[in-house]
Each structure stands twice: as structure tokens, then as C-alpha cells.
Design a protein around this nucleic acid. Structure first.
Lengths: 227, 227, 227, 227
DNA sequence: TATGAATGAGTATTCATTCAT
DNA sequence: GATGAATGAATACTCATTCAT
């Protein structure tokens, strides 16, 4: 359920404030190792197919330490997920910057943004793929993922609405959001998000991005703007 | 990897061929109860979050009986999945029939088909939602699901290509397939396929179907055909 | 506990009279298939590592038929074992015939008999190996095995006592029995009786037979008879 | 496959090195209880006829604790077996000490050693009997058992070869080894090693040891040395 | 008599979580 | 705070045996 544009969509801050507050020095370092280990295992073995003893071994911290920071395995996963989402969001402005620099017309901008969105998701698919699976079981993860999804769409929507004049739809914002939701869904599915194994390498992955861009342009823009 | 149109896309038969062939009478009845129980639990609790003892209890059959029919819990899940897919495919021609009966122009047909596809998936979302989660872990389920997906897209593609003259894309078949893949992905995501819990039932679900139809029409059809 | 020589040690009859009496024609044939299948599985997979469903499959008879002939899996094993022992005993006179034909002195006879005993057991090791394992768990099998063991030793003892004059021991019969028990034990161990897998192929198997023959001769015979 | 004499046959060390090293205090105590329980059950019920729940109950430790120390039930059995073998080996020098103290001639030494070997095995038959059955199914156990067997024979061989001058065989070492292998096999069989139930305690057990000693002396020694 | 589907007790193994040190 | 041993509920799977047809 995407929230309409608010300031909160723009000004935001990292969301790792779950569990007990991070400590200094050694303590901080072991927290890092713990989360890095969990993330690595999560990527390697899938959302739930690793045990805390694995985290303990890989991160060289004791089980007890994990429970000193987190109340449950679930919470650990949630925090690792949140950290990934933070990283994702931090990098997300790249989509707009790159797209803008490639585009001189509304049609080009639309196509470029869709293309960059696809490439962006592909770049992060190694982490998104298992994380979306976590979301299937854990509503906290699901909501945090939805938040990032919505924020990305919010930001891109703002950008696209700078071309509001070229958009033929009666409710431009809604139309833009619809396009982005659809594009995100199509890309996510094609990249195997929420699946345990990597998807068969898409020869038509590039083609899909182009088609999606064409669809977006065709849907959003006036006829004379299309090319 | 969608297969191009072949006859096999049209002539097909149910795929429930368990290791041991289904029997008569009592035997047959217990097989039914076992699969119904498994399906019910799968829908209720998610793809793998039910135990065979639950199946045994709910279906009023012994653990041993399950293993007389299936070599493993996995196989049981796979067969239940296959049965669902068979049912899905059996009903799938409805999409085309209903869409045709609502449409007198190419644009109307495109929009109607997309709309019916969405409604069709929504009608089956209670079973598709957990099943897509199974696919995340079990490649047999994944392949069977992909097969149904491809068959649906094949059949719809054939229908849409009857309007080939109205399609402005250089490669109409590829374009149609791309649209359908994207629509399927968007609907699946919105309906929460592959997630454990139901999605907040979107008030904008209807709107999404309309938008998707508009996008499809805008992408596929000549300008004068759009309305 | 070897029984002393009695007539029963010489006159004997096959021991398959367990279970219900064998039938005619088709019935008889299925009993044969059942026992052959059981024996084959027993040899292939070890004493207890096969299921009655395997017997049913391999022998092309139903589980029910097995239980019509035998009261339990144990009894089936016992009868198959008894049949093997019968075959063994039927062939056992060969030991004496061959040994006699090779020997012109008491020393030669002793050595030849020990050697033939070893070769005899080696020839049957494929069946004796798993069967001795059955004996470890089933006292009926154990007793039947002991019976065959005793009968073989009885028969050989009688033969060796024809050379009573050459034996230096105060109680020749006891001495002969001791030698044979020891030789049997040594051969059985070396051939891996009672083990699941075949023993590492004995390069020194021949040497053992010779040594054992020497030991027997040294123990039993007067000094001037030894060569 | 007995290894020829090497120093390693004499200098040796216990082989209990479980995956995870044994701990202090409480931890150590529970490891002891778990192995003691396993050994007791193994002796009482046979090699594999006990469940880990039994070990848990008898040893008053949780199932999980067992799996904290051992990777599988098999490994537990292997380690319990190794511990027994270690104990056996630790006591093994007694055979030689006692035999030496009873003997003033080569013939007496040979007879005494064979007798002591028999008594030694009889003293440990309660544990050897089920353990040899384990060896039938588990090659790790089999190899460890073979190692102890070989070490005992190595040590005794060294002792007997001090009387080399009295041995009439062309290859004294081989002859001695053959005798010991045979004696071991005969005793093992008579004591019911590898069988589940105890053998009927033979009144002729003593007689067998004497006979075996006579055979050994007759085989190994010069005529004038025999008495 | 023959069949083979149904039964269910029995067991090895996993892993999140607790808590004494 | 840190440690990691202890816990035990939960679960897939096997197979001898029964019995309705």
C-alpha cells in the first residue's frame, strides 16, 4: 500500500536501531562480524537454511553474544535485512542521476529510468533474491521491504513528475506509480527474487528492460512525445 | 523460458501420474483424502510448514499409507501442486471465452484479456500464493509452475495474434509474450503469490487491472486502434 | 556343544519342514521363488538389511503369500538358512572323498582334510558370510548352524579316526575334534563369516591352510608319522 | 592384514580423540555418563539394538548433548568401541607378564602364552562379544578392532621370538603369527564374539586352551623342546 | 488361497533458545 | 558482558504385520 508523497519519502535515516544499541570498539566489531556472517549465510544458503551455530562459527562470536544483541533469530534476520535495505536506499539516487544524464526528452527519460531500475535491481539481485524469501515468512521483513519499495517508487515518481506536462494520463501521479509498480514486479520476477536458486540466465533480460521502457512510454506519454 | 507456439501448447493432458497408479474404491478414496488434506494444510500453513503427522490426522490416513503412495513428503507436495496446476489449466480457456464475449475491437480484446487474466489469478490466489512459495524451494514444482505459466501465455498469445493486423510492433508475437509475462508478474506480486499471508486486499486491485490493460493496449496497438 | 558320535550324525534328512507343508505345482513354484528371492537378497544385502517388500518384488509374490507360508520374517530367514545348510551338508562328503583320493599316509590325510575343509568353506563363503550374521541375532539359526558344524566335524572325525593308530594323543577322538573346531574357527574368521562385507582378499589364504594342516599333523601324529 | 613388527607396535597411545575435545567438570562428567550409558546398553542389548533415547535416559543427558559431542549414533558407537580397545590394550601386557612368570622352558612359555591369551579374551568377552558384532556393520569399528588384534599379536610375537632358537619352522615370525591368529580366532569363536547372546559356558573351555597350547607347541618347537 | 493397501510404533537427527560459569 | 554446553520438542521416514477384498 504505497503512501502518497510526503516529506518522509525524501528525508530519511538508516533503520538499524533495533535490538540493543550498538557499542564501542570490540563490542561493535563483534556485532559487525555477527551481521556480516548472517548476511553471508543468508545469501549463500537461503533465507532460513542456516543455523545460529553457523553464524557463531563464521562470525567467530558465541551463540550467547548473539542473544545478547538480538532477542531471536528472527530479529537478527530482520536487522540484517534492514541493513541491506538501508544500503539499497543509499545507492538508489544513482538511478535518477544516471537516467537524467542519459536523457534529453521525456520519452528518453522514461525509458532510461525503467532501464536503470532494472539494472539497479539486477545489481542487487544476489541479496534481494533470498531477502524476498524472508519476507514471505516474516511480516517485519515484508513491511521493511515494502517501505524500501515504496521509497524507491516515491523518489522516481517525483522525478518523473517533473515531466508532468508530457504525460497524457488524467492522474499522472497514479499512472506513474502504476507503471513503476508493474516494472518493479516484472523485474523482480524475472530476476528470481524470492526464489532459492538463481534464475536461468536471461538472454532476454535486456529485451525485457527495453520492452518495459516502451510500454511505460506508450502508456504515459502523448503520441507526439513518444519518440 | 517460454517455448514458442507449438501444437503441444494446445493439446495437453493432466499430469497427475503418481509413482504407483491410483486404485479403485477404498484405495482411491484414501488417496483423495490424503491429497486434499495436504492441499488444505498447504494453503493454511504455507508450503512446508506442515508435518506429515498433520496430513495423517486431517486426512484420517496413516503415515504408512502416505509412503505407500509417495516416496517422500516432497513428492506429495509436488503431486498436490501438479493437481492444482491441472485444475488451473482446465479452467484457463474461460479467460479467452469471457474476454472474447466482452470485446468487439482489438483494444477491447486486449484490455479484456488482461482484465480476465487478473481476475483468473485472483480467483486462484488462495492456492497460488502458497504454491509459488513451494516453487522457491523445489525445482520440480518450479518447473511444473513454469509449464502452466507458459501454457497460459501460449494460449493467450494465440488468441491475441488473431488481431495481428492491429499490432504495431515489428515482432508481434514477442511483443505479446512480453506484455503477458509482465502482466502475469505484476498480478502475481500484487496478489501476494509466494508469500505466506494474504496481501492487504487492495482497493486499487481493480485499478491495477485497468492500468495494465491500458499499458498493454498502448504498447501493442496502432494509435487509431487504442480506443 | 558337539554331540558325541551317534548314528544320527550319519543318517540324516533335509530339514525344511518348518511352516506349512510345501504344495503342488504353482503353489510350490511360488514358494521356491520366495525362498530364492530371500536368499538372493540375504546374500546381496546382508542378513537383515532387506525388507519383505523386496522379497515380494524380487520373487514376484505378494506379501500376503509370504505370510501364508511363514509366520514371520524370522521364520523365512530360518528356513532359507536351513535350506542352505541342507545343501552344504549334501555336498560335505566331497571333503572326505577328495582328501582320501589325495592321500596315502596319515599325515597326508590330515593335511588334505584340513585343506579341503578350508576350500569347502571358501567355496560357500558367499552364503556363509551373511548367514553367520543371522546366527548372531537368531538362536534358531544359530542352533541350525551349530548342527551343521557338528555334523561336519562328526563326519570328518570318523574319517580321521580310521588312522587312530597313528595318533599320539591319549584321547584321539577329543583331540581330533579339537583340531577340527579350531580349524573351522580359523577359516571362518579369515573368510569373514559373520561380517557384512567381503574380507580383504587373502593372499595368505593358501598359506593359512597349509599352516593349519601342519599344526594339525604336528598335534595329532607321532613324530615318525609327521612327514 | 597384520603389519610386520615395527616400533609402533610397542609404543602407542589411547585413541579417544572425539571430534570436540573433552572438557572440564560438568561437561566432562556428562560425556562420561553418555559413553558409559552407551557402553552398558551396547553390552546389554547388542551393537545396534539400542536407541539414543535409551542412552539419553540411562545417562541422564539430553539427546542434544549427545549430538553436541558426536556427529551421529555411529560415531558414538565408534568412540565407545575405541575406548574399550584402549582399555584392552592397556591391560594386554599382563598376558606376557603372567606367562613369563609361569614359564621356565620354551614349551612352557608357548603354552602359557596361549593359555593367558584365552583367559584374557574370556575376561573381556562381555564387551568383545557385542563389539565384534558392531565390526560386522561398521568399517571404522572393524579397522579399530583389527588394529588392536594386530597390536596384541605383534606384542606376543616379539615375546615368542625371544625363543627363536627353539622354533623349528623355517620362517619363525610367520609361523608364530599364524599360530596366534588361529588361536585368537578359535578363542573368539568359542567365546561367542560377534554373537548377541552368551555362549553356553563350555566345560571344555579349559580343555580348548590346553589343546590349543599343545598344538602351538607341537607346531612351533623342536621335538626335544616339546615337553 | 492370493493379494497388496493400511497400519503405526519406533528412531535418528536438527536447531532455536536457555543459563550456569 | 561473554561463553558454549545443555536442552528437548519436533519430524521425516522404515518396515513387519494385519486383514478386507
Amino acid at each position: 500500500m504505497p503512501t502518497r508523497l510526503t516529506d518522509s519519502a525524501v528525508t530519511r535515516e538508516p533503520s538499524i536501531t533495533v535490538g540493543r544499541p550498538p557499542q564501542q570498539g570490540r563490542s561493535r566489531a563483534s556485532l559487525e562480524r555477527m551481521m556480516d556472517a548472517a548476511e553471508a549465510l543468508l545469501v549463500e544458503r537461503g533465507c532460513d537454511d542456516f543455523a545460529l551455530t553457523d553464524v557463531s562459527r563464521v562470525g567467530r562470536i558465541s551463540i550467547g553474544s548473539i542473544y545478547n544483541r538480538f532477542t531471536s533469530k528472527n530479529e537478527l534476520v530482520q536487522v540484517v535485512h534492514a541493513r541491506s535495505m538501508d544500503r539499497l536506499e543509499a545507492e538508489q539516487t544513482l538511478i535518477l542521476m544516471r537516467a537524467r544524464s542519459r536523457s534529453s526528452t521525456p520519452a528518453m527519460l522514461v525509458r532510461a529510468i525503467i532501464d536503470e531500475l532494472g539494472q539497479f535491481l539486477a545489481r542487487h539481485s544476489h541479496i534481494m533474491r533470498p531477502m524476498m524469501l524472508c519476507a514471505a515468512f516474516d511480516s517485519v521483513v515484508q513491511n521493511r521491504g515494502r517501505l524500501t519499495h515504496d521509497r524507491m517508487i516515491d523518489a522516481i515518481t517525483i522525478e518523473l513528475l517533473t515531466q508532468r506536462a508530457a504525460i497524457r494520463q488524467p492522474d499522472p501521479e497514479r499512472a506513474v506509480r502504476a507503471v513503476l509498480r508493474i516494472a518493479y514486479a516484472a523485474f523482480a520476477r524475472e530476476l528470481g527474487f524470492g526464489r532459492a536458486e538463481a534464475p536461468p540466465d536471461g538472454a532476454d533480460w535486456t529485451q525485457l528492460r527495453v520492452d518495459m521502457g516502451d510500454m511505460a512510454a506508450a502508456f504515459l506519454l502523448d503520441d507526439e512525445e513518444k519518440r
